[in-house]
Every structure is written in structure tokens, then in C-alpha cells.
């Protein structure tokens, strides 16, 4: 595959199925099929996928599940890689992305499943970093297996960096969370200028019943 065969563009509503795949697959690790969010809410992966599609289709800007957050790499007319990113707290209602995401989840996912997640929230709370207002957040970087090795993630990060700089919001840094054993992703981020600034760990071993791993790095890049 030549680099020239890839084109980059903003995601649209026609990409929701690919974005749902990226949101699910990017949170897996090589040695486990566990999907943390599905396990937390006690949903099958297919149920979760359908709820993620519904949340994306609401077209709420400024959070993890916003179509407008995503940039797509396309090859021969098909999406093959993507990365999401947004400026924390900068949206129509100046809401923290965590609450926009919560509102979407609470609106779309049935209450009995939200309660299941609530019961387990103490297990995973240590893995949730409080997103810094005004900092550019990257989430859900994913490339289809057959398109890996062409630097698509690095190119998508560059495009997010351009978005951040051109936003007019004086964004001073970009942040991304990654499992500490995801060496290929960490290498890609470091190559793009990110450095590990914080280590997060969910100490209760029960978390591994639901999540593929229990340690994360927060990486940052100054702009």
C-alpha cells in the first residue's frame, strides 16, 4: 500500500459503523478479547456496538462519542483508520466531556444496565483521569490490521494537532491514555512527541474480571 493511496477527512454520519468498531477494538489488548465497557454494563459486544451507534447518531459534539471528534483515514473509498480528539470543556454548553458522555449513555443504555455499571464503578475509578479543561484529548486510535505499519496513527495525530492549533482556543497540550502494556501504541505516541506523565492503576484484582488490563499511562505533548 502506497501512502498516496490514503486520504484523510473528518468523519461523517456515514462512518458510524466503523467508528463503533474503532471505539470497541481500540480498547482491547493483544492477549485478551475482553471489552471493558460491555463487561461493566453487562452487555454483549453486539448490544454495546448498537448502543454506541445510537449515541454517535445523536451528533452531540465535544466528547468521546461525537462524530465530529473523529478524523478518518480512507483507502479506496473505505475508512481504514481513525482517531478521535476534542478540546476538553469547549462545546455548545461548555460541559465536561465526561458528563456529555454520561448523558448519552444514560439516554441510550437501559437503566438496569447503567445500575450494573454503577455497582462496579469503585473497581475502575482509579483508571479514570480527570480530563484537564482546555487540553486536547485523544481517544480511540484504531487502524484495521491490514493497514497497520503505514504510520496512519502518526498522521492522524498530526491532523489533530493542526486542529488544536487552528481552534483559536490557545490549546497548550494534548493528552492520551493507553494501557501500559500496549507497547506499539506507546511507541507511536512517543514518536509523535508524547511523554508519559502519570501512571494509573486499578488496585483491586477483581477489575481484571471485566477489563483486559489494570494499568494505564497518561501521556502528554506540549503544543
Amino acid at each position: 500500500m502506497e501512502n498516496s493511496e490514503y486520504i484523510f477527512r473528518n468523519a461523517t454520519i456515514d462512518d458510524v459503523e466503523f467508528l463503533a468498531t474503532a471505539i470497541i477494538e481500540s480498547k482491547k489488548i493483544a492477549t485478551s478479547d475482553k471489552v471493558g465497557m460491555a463487561n461493566l454494563f453487562e452487555l454483549s459486544v453486539e448490544e454495546l456496538r448498537s448502543y454506541i451507534v445510537q449515541m454517535l447518531e445523536e451528533e452531540i459534539d465535544g466528547c468521546d462519542f461525537s462524530i465530529s471528534s473523529f478524523i478518518i483515514a480512507e483507502c479506496k473509498g473505505n475508512p481504514v483508520a481513525t482517531f478521535g480528539g476534542w478540546i476538553e470543556g469547549v462545546n455548545e454548553d461548555d460541559m465536561p466531556s465526561s458528563l456529555l458522555k454520561s448523558n448519552l449513555i444514560g439516554y441510550v443504555i437501559p437503566l438496569e444496565h447503567v445500575k450494573k455499571a454503577q455497582e462496579k464503578s469503585h473497581l475502575v475509578s482509579d483508571l479514570q483521569v480527570s480530563r484537564e479543561p482546555g487540553a486536547y484529548q485523544l481517544e480511540y486510535g484504531y487502524t484495521l490490521p491490514e493497514h497497520r505499519g503505514y504510520g496512519l496513527i502518526g498522521k492522524l495525530i498530526k491532523l489533530h494537532e493542526k486542529r488544536a492549533k487552528e481552534s483559536g482556543c490557545n490549546v497548550s497540550k494534548m493528552q492520551v491514555l493507553v494501557y501500559d502494556i500496549n507497547t506499539p501504541a506507546i511507541k507511536a505516541y512517543e514518536k509523535s512527541g508524547f511523554r508519559v506523565v502519570q501512571r494509573l492503576e486499578a488496585k483491586d484484582p477483581e477489575v481484571l474480571k471485566y477489563y483486559p488490563h489494570n494499568k494505564e499511562f497518561l501521556l502528554e505533548k506540549s503544543l
Binding site: 465526561s98 458528563l99 458522555k101 454520561s102 448523558n103 449513555i105 444514560g106 437503566l111 447503567v114 445500575k115 455499571a117 454503577q118 464503578s121 475509578s125 479514570q128
Partner: peptide, 11 residues
């Protein structure tokens, strides 16, 4: 008041 308790509060 975090993302999960927010959902419960709204419900």
C-alpha cells in the same frame, strides 16, 4: 459527582 453517579442522579 462523577460520570456514573451523574447518570444515576438524572435517572
Amino acid at each position: 459527582w462523577d460520570s456514573l453517579t451523574h447518570m444515576m442522579m438524572i435517572a
